[in-house]
């Protein structure tokens, strides 16, 4: 093409104003954030007590749950609401494999992820023909049905009495305390975080976002839309399964009460309040929101009120999440 044509095609040669520029892919700030996260994770056990480590373990489980939901909702834009069910599959798979075969925990963790992922692919293949509200409701129904199974399949899950699980082990090492479980949980979280970043930056992640932004355009670009959705859903179930297995490493007891819609909603709100569509948002949302609900645990009614108010106020005044909010405000300060 002639230079003249090129010049005519672009309306102005000046570079676009700064506010147009979307976040670039690799920024020093992001690498810094990742390094800081890693550093905190490494030094935490040296400075805090067992109880704090228990909370840390729990928060990290929620981080992985959020990363999984981020893949299917944030990246692919599919509102699937059965996350707690896959989390439950992970917990029970891991716990039962430990009880029955005494498998080393990395194996039961992988198994937990794979089984949850496989169930996710099957459910996704059926549910993802539906869109929007119907998808949300179908997956919601599946989640409730599965919780019912957890509650009523007494022989396997112990039903409402719960299930006692033997300590996770690797060779002769047995995990008996939160402090011993912490390195396992932290390393798994880091691996899952890296995997998420990898996916997000790859061809797979791009195809997920393409589906989120426009299904018809994605199709025209050669992306099999249905398969992309099922892949994202299966991956998110895999994450939830691994998170369940992480929970099993520092728990001695499983109860199906926490494996219902409430937990799915908790994870969803973490992802949304952190900032839908960003990995930092998913992680940050999990940590900030997890801490808030932990602080408020002593007073259940206040916890609910404050929790609800936070959600409402965020949706009113920081609709794109905590991180976008901070980013905007900080930007305004720097610009004067």
């Amino acid at each position: 093409m002639s230079d003249k044509a090129a010049a005519m095609l672009s309306r102005s040669e000046a570079s676009p104003p700064a506010r147009w520029t979307a976040r670039s892919n690799v920024s020093p700030a992001r690498i810094g954030l990742l390094a800081l996260t890693t550093a905190v994770l490494i030094f935490l056990p040296f400075v805090v007590t067992g109880y704090v480590l228990y909370i840390a373990n729990l928060l990290l489980v929620f981080v992985v749950l959020c990363l999984g939901l981020h893949l299917v909702i944030g990246e692919t834009g599919q509102f699937a609401l059965a996350h707690a069910a896959f989390y439950g599959i992970g917990i029970y798979t891991s716990g039962l494999a430990g009880n029955a075969f005494g498998w080393p925990f990395p194996m039961s963790m992988l198994l937990a992820g794979l089984i949850a992922g496989a169930v996710g692919v099957v459910i996704g293949a059926v549910a993802l023909c539906m869109r929007d509200i119907y998808l949300a409701l179908a997956t919601f129904a599946f989640g409730e049905a599965l919780q019912w199974v957890f509650l009523n399949w007494d022989k396997v899950t112990g039903g409402p009495n719960g299930l006692r699980i033997s300590p996770a082990r690797l060779g002769t090492l047995e995990i008996l305390s939160d402090k011993q479980a912490y390195p396992v949980v932290a390393i798994t979280t880091l691996l899952m975080l890296l995997l998420t970043i990898l996916i997000s930056r790859s061809r797979l992640g791009r195809s997920f976002r393409a589906v989120r932004e426009s299904e018809v355009a994605a199709m025209a670009m050669g992306i099999p839309v249905r398969r992309a959705k099922v892949t994202a859903f299966g991956l998110s179930a895999f994450y939830a399964g691994v998170a369940g297995s992480m929970f099993a490493t520092f728990s001695t007891y499983i109860h199906p009460d926490s494996l219902g819609f409430q937990t799915t909603i908790l994870v969803l709100t973490m992802v949304v309040v952190g900032g839908l569509g960003s990995i930092a948002g998913a992680v940050g949302g999990a940590v900030v929101f997890g801490l808030i609900s932990e602080f408020l645990r002593q007073t259940p009614s206040y916890q609910e009120i404050i929790y609800g108010l936070i959600l409402i106020v965020f949706m009113m005044y920081a609709p794109r999440g905590l991180f976008a909010f901070i980013h905007d405000k900080a930007g305004r300060v720097f610009r004067g």
Partner: peptide, 18 residues
């Protein structure tokens, strides 16, 4: 039918998907 929330670069990258 653009991928509205994505960057110009990413839009074209998705075109190169195949």
């Amino acid at each position: 039918e653009l991928f509205g929330e994505l960057t110009v670069f990413e839009n074209v990258m998705i075109g190169a998907h195949v």
